[in-house]
Nucleic acid binder design. Sequence first.
RNA 1: GGUCCUGUGGUGCAGUUUGGAGUGCACACCGCCCUGUCAAGGCGGAGGCCGCGGGUUCAAAUCCCGUCAGGACCGCCA
Length: 583
Amino acid sequence: MMRTHEVGTLRPEHAGHEVTVAGWVASRRDHGGVVFFDLRDASGLLQVVVDPEQITDDDVHHIGREWVIQIVGEVRPRREGTVNADLPTGGVEVGARSLTVLNRAEPPPFPLSDRGDDVDEVLRLKHRYLDLRRNSMQRNLRIRSRVNAALRTSMNEQDFVEVETPMLIASTPEGARDFVVPSRFSPGEFYALPQSPQLFKQLLMVGGLDRYFQIARCLRDEDLRGNRQFEFMQYDMEMSFAGQADVMAVVTTAVSAAVEVITGEPLAFIPTMTWAEAMERFGSDKPDVRFGMELTDLGDAVAGTEFKAFHADAVKGICVPGRGDASRSVLDGLVDRAKALGAAGLVWMRVMAEGSLESPVAKFLTAEEQAAIVGALGAAPGDLVLIVAGARRRTNDVLGALRLDLGRPPVAEGGLVPLWIVDFPLFEALGDDGQPIPAHHPFTQPHPEDLALLDTASGEEFLDIRSQAYDLVINGWELGSGSVRIHDPGMQQRIFSLLGIDETEAQARFGFLLDAFRYGAPPHAGFAFGVDRLVALLAGEESIREVIAFPKTQSGADPLTGAPNRLDASQLRELGITVPPRK
RNA sequence: GGUCCUGUGGUGCAGUUUGGAGUGCACACCGCCCUGUCAAGGCGGAGGCCGCGGGUUCAAAUCCCGUCAGGACCGCCA
């Protein structure tokens, strides 16, 4: 038997038991005579004591970190004054009767203790198998496993059917850039890897599965970020004879179950906010509502002002508490940032004692206007006021970004604060040809109150049409989104025609789905969210790389395996692929 | 595609602003001492292409140009 116990399970009630334990040497404290080892396995740390009267082999003084050893010995309570309150096993130790070296180890290239948290990430990824031994990675992957299990259990309890959908599918030109896989049987032709199971889950609804879910791997060939990887896991669901409220209830139950299994507290209730309100108050469709600094409309405060920059579609501001002491170079940096985000400029104002304003533009504003600005923002002496004027949507975007730059707390601070964002616009913008561009995807059902607008709208008015699309946001991260789908061929035809997709093109892109819908598609709606992001939030990590066993760097490389790499000439020949010579 | 930040013994940093001998700190590593430590302690030692290439200069870790790698952000992510 390799071991009788995992080290982290031993407690004072085991005193007197003879145990066999095995693991890695986390540290050695060598007194020349007695030697202490911290023995680590997946369950934790345990102090092992090697007494020279028990074990006389001098090699014990040369056992290094990360050596793999096995100890047979007796559990005993620690002597008075030597209990370690920082360790769950700190009340006991094992006195070694025998010590076996199961494997030697070279010194690791970086510390595996909690001190290793600051190590260069490339080095960690290159030796991920060592990085995984560290506390935080062990913890994060175990959180991930329990979240996956909780989601599955919840969906099964809610009578959903888990169905796997294919990884090798047809490419459609919609959405994100596809990863593609060459076909050996049909040289010159390619499969695409799924960006999401979207079309398949709608086919499953036509197929009468009624309630589908999957924890699905999705792939998108777009630039990576702290919370975006090429490949990621989506909790994906779709339900028939159901609408927005039904979907939100099911998702809330599942997410709540996952949160509860980690934090011990369910998400009792997830408040709802319209997209329009989120944009006006927070300048974001994924508002972080854990802190204030809300966007305030200053249109009334500066109505009729002489200051020409404030003669704009919208004049809005935020108040940054206590940052009136920001240096000129910091303020210049904020102005640059605002301009980079597309603002014409940024007005900053330091709020001085008695509420007077110190600002390059103060001389253009009357005392009444200055007082109105301070009043509207509720600014106090010592605060910093930032004002942007311009087109309303751009103004909201810029201030929303500055608000996050200046006020956003660490992702784990204050627990999880979830929010449903509803009534997204159906179209996010107008293309160069004046055709509206869908905000979600072209199968999204318009909002019932805005159906009439579909026929009467023109130009920018299209952007006011709402849809039955909804997002789940937690702590300012877009966790996922969903929508009620169009199931009526007539409505689908109208949307395609608004999007400038003619029948031939629609057939070519989504013909199989449209064909399926001719045979009696049930009304259906669904949702999907990023499991990596949920796990990162629950683990308190800013980057999903910390909750993925083998992630890629920002340039899409894997320092451990060397992916991506080049193929043999013979392999390429078989696939009918020619690649340019290496530069 | 763009902007910004970072790159110095195995690891984490300081040094770069204002050029002057690879100068410093902590950890790890090796040797010796040490029988109750908790990241043990003490003494000693070894370990450097200052990411890479070019330029300026009497002299470059330091200034300039280029490049590579990593990260954050913009674009992108229906």
